[in-house]
């Protein structure tokens, strides 16, 4: 079974986001980049499937050269091959542009399961999984926490509101991974050394026959018009509790008159 795991390289969830000068993108100075945590769950699930059933795991990303660090990390954890679709010279790509590029590359590979994180931490759009399913003309299952393997199909456990939904889909299939009990592993030192020696294949959008200019930047279906930080949190108001009765009274007054929640 051949697994393709699409990984996005995103700002560390610890990052203090600043809006860039353009007002429509983030200021990338000093940002530490990581593999999107949901993608790590996808990779872990693919690696476990490979260990149990054989096959290969390929990690695939669309991004700048720096994103190869994320691919190397995937290789160090046990992926066999890595492909980067180069974003150099491409304008802001929306979910559809990214899904189009990924689909074009995946069509050149023999994938039984295409894995992605259910969402990319950062933009949280949750669009690429269903789009990729459509573009590849394959079934897709989102929010997957667990997968059982059958001959020619998979049984997926979906985490839905207050319940688990169990669905079956024929292979090949596109899977959007949710956080699960299968905690992503650390790379091994042996893996790090071996990953260094591996070649990362780099493809340009044109190599994949995608006219990316027509669907990115100003031509994208979704254009970011403005990025704003949430309003700064106001300072906490502490009610001194030397006299509990008085403090309770004051608290009530504040909730009524200032916060206006009562």
């Amino acid at each position: 079974m051949n697994h393709v795991v699409c990984i996005a390289y995103v700002p560390d969830t610890d990052t203090k986001i600043k809006v860039g000068a353009s007002g429509t993108s983030i200021d990338e100075a000093g940002v530490k980049w990581i593999v999107s945590p949901y993608d790590e769950y996808a990779l872990e699930a693919a690696l476990r499937a490979k260990e149990a059933k054989g096959g290969t795991v390929t990690v695939l990303t669309y991004g700048p050269a720096a994103a190869e660090t994320g691919l190397r990390d995937g290789l160090a954890r046990g992926a066999d091959e890595a492909v980067r679709i180069a974003s150099e010279g491409v304008g802001e790509a929306d979910s559809l542009a990214v899904a189009t590029l990924l689909a074009a590359q995946i069509k050149t590979m023999k994938a039984d399961v295409v894995w992605l994180g259910n969402k990319g931490v950062g933009t949280d759009a949750q669009l690429v999984v269903p789009m990729l399913g459509e573009l590849l003309d394959l079934p897709h299952v989102t929010l997957v926490t667990e997968l059982d393997w059958k001959d020619g199909s998979v049984v997926a456990h979906r985490e839905i509101e207050g319940a688990t939904e169990i669905v079956e889909a024929p292979l090949p299939v596109v899977i959007g991974a949710q956080k699960s009990k299968a905690e992503p592993r650390y790379a091994s030192l042996k893996g790090i050394m071996a990953a260094k020696k591996k070649q990362i294949a780099v493809k340009k959008p044109a190599d994949l026959g995608v006219d990316i200019a027509s669907m990115s930047g100003a031509n994208a279906a979704v254009v970011w018009t403005k990025l704003e930080l949430p309003a700064a949190r106001q300072a906490v108001k502490l009610v001194p509790a030397d006299d509990p009765a008085k403090a309770a009274e004051e608290l009530l007054r504040l909730l009524r008159e200032e916060a206006k929640v009562l």
Binding site: Y186, A187, I192, K196
Partner: peptide, 9 residues
Amino acid sequence: EDERAVRDL
């Protein structure tokens, strides 16, 4: 680079 990668892991 290797040494830093080991350390960072």
